[in-house]
């Protein structure tokens, strides 16, 4: 660039200012994420470096932070709770979202396709507390009646709710992945005499595999991070689940329910931030893996022509 050739008129200044603003916007994402990590790290540090036992945290199901004589901070039951709910949610969400993505991407045409896409995005816009209401007031009595379960707030209830919540995002990303498969693949397969089903099963799905794995991983990330709906529908019980009808408690829900009434800086407070650090690390890893898959494998072996899909998990 030749600076001498620039005319420093209004447009030049507008251009400069816009450039700086956009740069600041881009940098802010990095600043925020580092800032958040430093903040939760600092709040949890006292606990991690002093009272913390990694063994107890990971292997004990006893979460009794306000006990008079023996406060314990075992997160195993909370981790198991989050994992079981998220696992069931994926069992619900994967078939739904994959089916929807295949239909929207490969079969639907014209207005039908546009309408479906809008509806799926609308589904993603339902606030999680509304899903929680559905779990609490519709699913809860239903599960008690249909399955004779002792209580309707359990893994099954929150897993279904969470599956329905994760499905729209997974559908959108899976559909993007299928769209990224070049049409020449389909045309070649059809020219060989493959039926529509064979084209999808043998050509499109394998070619879009990485994107589909990424969609599932982002769904898992969504499940791990979801708070309100799980808090309302899971029963909020510190419990190692042995069946879908057991009430459980999620990591996120524990933080939400307990932080408000905990004295700032106390051991309990720091333990809750340690849960936060753990959650952050898990969701960070999941999103990173999803990103790797979207880019078509490990960094360095990146394939050409695959547009990375924006991460849908904020």
């Amino acid at each position: 660039m030749n600076a001498a050739a620039d005319r420093r008129d209004l447009s030049w200044w507008v251009d400069k200012v816009a450039q700086i603003l956009v740069l600041a916007g881009g940098l802010s994402a990095i600043v925020f994420i580092v800032g958040i990590f430093l903040f939760i790290g600092r709040e949890g540090a006292g606990f991690i470096f002093e009272g913390f036992s990694l063994r107890e945290f990971l292997l004990s199901p006893r979460w009794t932070p306000t006990s008079n004589h023996n406060p314990t901070f075992g997160a195993l039951a909370l981790i198991a709770g989050t994992a079981s709910v998220t696992g069931l949610a994926m069992v619900v969400a994967v078939p739904f979202s994959l089916g929807a993505a295949i239909y929207i991407g490969e079969f639907a045409t014209g207005r039908g396709r546009e309408t479906l896409k809008v509806l799926v995005e609308l589904l993603a816009a339902i606030p999680s507390v509304v899903w929680g209401f559905v779990g609490l007031s519709i699913m809860n009595p239903l599960i008690v009646r249909v399955f004779d379960a002792p209580v309707g707030l359990n893994v099954l209830n929150s897993g279904i709710i969470l599956g329905l919540m994760a499905a729209p995002i997974m559908t959108t990303i899976a559909e993007d992945a299928l769209k990224a498969v070049p049409d020449t693949y389909r045309e070649a397969a059809e020219a060989m005499g493959a039926t529509r089903w064979q084209v999808i099963l043998k050509v499109v799905l394998p070619a879009g595999r990485n994107g589909l794995v990424a969609a599932t991983l982002l769904g898992v990330g969504r499940g791990f991070g979801e708070t309100m709906a799980v808090l309302m529908a899971s029963g909020h019980a510190v419990n190692l689940p042995t069946s879908p009808f057991d009430a459980v408690r999620a990591l996120t829900a524990t933080i939400a329910a307990e932080l408000g009434e905990t004295a700032e800086g106390s051991e309990h407070w720091q333990a809750l931030f340690t849960l936060g650090i753990f959650l952050f690390l898990v969701t960070f890893t999941i999103n990173f893996l999803a990103d790797v898959f979207v880019r078509g494998g490990l960094p360095g072996r990146r394939r050409r022509g695959r547009r990375p899909v924006a991460s849908a998990n904020p």
């Binding site: 009794t64 008690v144 002792p150 309707g152 707030l153 510190v238 419990n239 009430a247």
Partner: peptide, 25 residues
């Protein structure tokens, strides 16, 4: 003051939530 609750209780966030759940269970 020397004994804790058994784990596995459903820990509700408010008295009204307790009553609502017991009414339905």
């Amino acid at each position: 003051d020397q004994r804790d609750f058994k784990l596995g209780s459903l820990d509700m966030h408010g008295s009204k939530d307790v009553v609502d759940l017991v009414e339905n269970t």
